[in-house]
Design a protein around this nucleic acid. Structure first.
Length: 500
RNA sequence: GCGGCGUUGGUAAAUCGGUUAAUACGCCACCCUUUCACGGUGGAAUGACGGGUUCGACUCCCGUACGCCGUACCA
């Protein structure tokens, strides 16, 4: 009977990539389906990685996707603040509580000392020694120093580390993977509270999930190795009965099988982020799905199917269907390679499903010369040949604007001298413009004229098409003629004749 | 190195011990269309390897190999 509360907790350090969007999506679907609450918490505990604008950018992406949180810095609920930097004072008492309980300790080692320790204990078998059972007693911390020395050192910079038990088996049930277990002896004494007073992710995530009453945590599989730390913290803080259920989502992979990153985008030429992002520090630009011409519902549909399916074979889902059908127990265990070709297919399908009226506002940016009365019928005619939104520019542009250039090579390849007379006669017949009721009438007149001149109608179709649209593409020629009108058609035919 | 998690066609994947191992994307061919697309038909292409368990394994168990993730005072 407990309330479902889920959260997405990004750190505002850069763009939001589609792996993150999928994590948001799964959280969102689960929350909507269960009548729960979706919380967005900003994890900005690393001041050195602060990126101006990144937080706003995340909101912009979520808004575009239609995955807005119920509680966030924009719409605070009862458990704020929703930015960890503003919760700073909250964490220290919990760290102190852990120390008092003997589950954590102060450490005073400088970065140099840490590096020295790693160097000293490094062996061929163990290239990265941990701050843990075998090393902690060699370091400067409240375990090795006497009370007076600790009290003295506390005036200077210090951190709090968790004291990992020597030989304990931490086991829990992951909603996706089932029983998962770890040996505590293999996990190091992670820093909980940093020298600057900020918590690390490990402390912050547990404290905040508890305080924000989170019931289920859906996060990427990259967090699985640190899950035992979080489990222990829930236990040590005495909150175990309130601990959320865990679900570690399979990773989104690039074509090379490695965790999807913006590197893949530039390497393979596809977007990685939800929306365009330029890093203000480096000037690095990463392309977004929005600007590439994807529909948000298509992006969400394809991301949902990357790691989940309902077993029916259905691939096209509306958001409502996803909310209804999503089932965390049917999420797969292995990483999924992102396939841009398939992504394009999803977008094509979703474009096809939209009406011309729904499409109109979305394609206006690509059709500067579009006129209102022709727009809808044109969109209806061309939408099935558009995969991405910018495709409407080339597929529909010529209805509103005379082509800047025509494919003369293709035209000449099909050209016969007798055609010139035909097209001149045709242009004259269209100028002054006759009354065109429909495409069929135009075709009839065209056929008759071809017969009179003894030319096969079929031979003339492609040349006419090229004259009208500029190339070998587009809907039926007579549909095009009907929409652009006789006088404009005559103009285009004469223009082509003059160039041939 | 160690730990964790994975492994069905190129990719996404169904199968929940018994099938000629679905389906979709992509690819190839043909049909439709004297354009492009849509649509239709057909085709090539899959259970990493080795042991078990079982009357019977893609499905369960063990091992090996391989891949990924983690191993920060980053998240």
């Amino acid at each position: 009977m407990s309330q479902v509360r889920v959260r997405f907790a990004p750190s505002p350090t850069g763009g939001l990539h589609i792996g993150g969007v999928r994590t948001v999506l799964f959280n969102y679907l689960f929350a909507r389906q269960q009548g729960g609450t979706f919380v967005l918490r900003i994890e900005d505990t690393d001041q050195s990685r602060f990126v101006p604008g990144a937080e706003q950018y995340i909101f912009n992406c979520l808004r575009w996707c239609g995955l807005m949180p119920d509680e966030s810095v924009e719409h605070p609920g009862a458990v704020g603040p929703y930015r960890q930097s503003e919760r700073k004072a909250l964490y220290r008492p919990y760290a102190e509580q852990l120390i008092a309980a003997g589950k954590a300790y102060y450490a005073f080692d400088t970065p140099e000392e840490l590096a020295q320790m790693r160097e000293q204990f490094k062996t061929a078998e163990n290239p990265s020694p941990q701050y843990g059972a075998v090393t902690r007693m060699h370091m400067r911390n409240s375990l090795t120093m006497d009370e007076a020395a600790v009290a003295e050192a506390l005036n200077g910079p210090h951190v709090v580390r968790i004291l990992m038990p020597q030989d304990e088996r931490i086991q829990f049930k992951d909603m996706i993977r089932g029983e998962v277990s770890f040996d505590t002896g293999l996990v190091d004494d992670k820093v909980l509270l940093k020298a600057d007073g900020m918590p690390t992710y490990h402390l912050a995530v547990v404290v905040d999930d508890y305080l924000m009453q989170i019931s289920h945590v859906f996060r990427g599989e990259e967090w699985l190795p640190s899950a035992p730390i979080h489990l222990l913290l829930w236990r040590y803080l005495g909150w175990e009965e309130k601990m959320p259920q865990w679900a570690h989502l399979p990773l989104l992979l690039g074509p090379d099988g490695a965790k999807l990153s913006k590197r893949h985008g530039s390497k393979y030429g596809f977007p990685i982020f939800a929306m365009n992002w330029t890093d203000p520090r480096t000037g690095d630009f990463t392309e977004g799905f929005a600007e590439r011409g994807f529909l948000p519902q298509a992006l969400l549909n394809l991301l949902a199917l990357l790691g989940w399916n309902d077993g029916s074979g259905q691939e096209l889902f509306s958001m409502e269907e996803l909310v209804q059908r999503f089932d965390i127990s049917r999420v797969s265990h292995s990483g999924a390679v992102f396939d841009f070709e398939k992504a394009r297919w999803f977008n094509h399908q979703h474009i096809h499903r939209l009406s011309a009226a729904e499409l109109a506002p979305l394609v206006m940016p690509y059709l500067p010369a579009a006129s209102n009365e022709k727009l809808l019928p044109v969109l209806e005619l061309v939408k099935e040949r558009c995969t991405l939104l910018p495709d409407f520019g080339v597929q529909a542009g010529f209805f509103f604007q005379t082509p800047e250039s025509i494919d003369l090579d293709s035209l000449r390849a099909k050209w016969k001298p007798v055609y010139a007379a035909f097209f001149e006669t045709l242009a004259s017949a269209w100028d002054p413009a006759p009354a065109w009721e429909n495409a069929a009438d135009i075709e009839t007149a065209f056929t008759v004229l071809a017969q009179e001149l003894g030319i096969k109608k079929g031979e003339l179709m492609l040349p006419l098409r090229i004259m009208l649209v500029g190339g070998k593409f587009g809907p039926g020629v007579f549909d095009i003629l009907h929409l652009i009108g006789a006088s404009e058609a005559a103009k285009r035919v004469r223009n082509a004749l003059s160039q041939i």
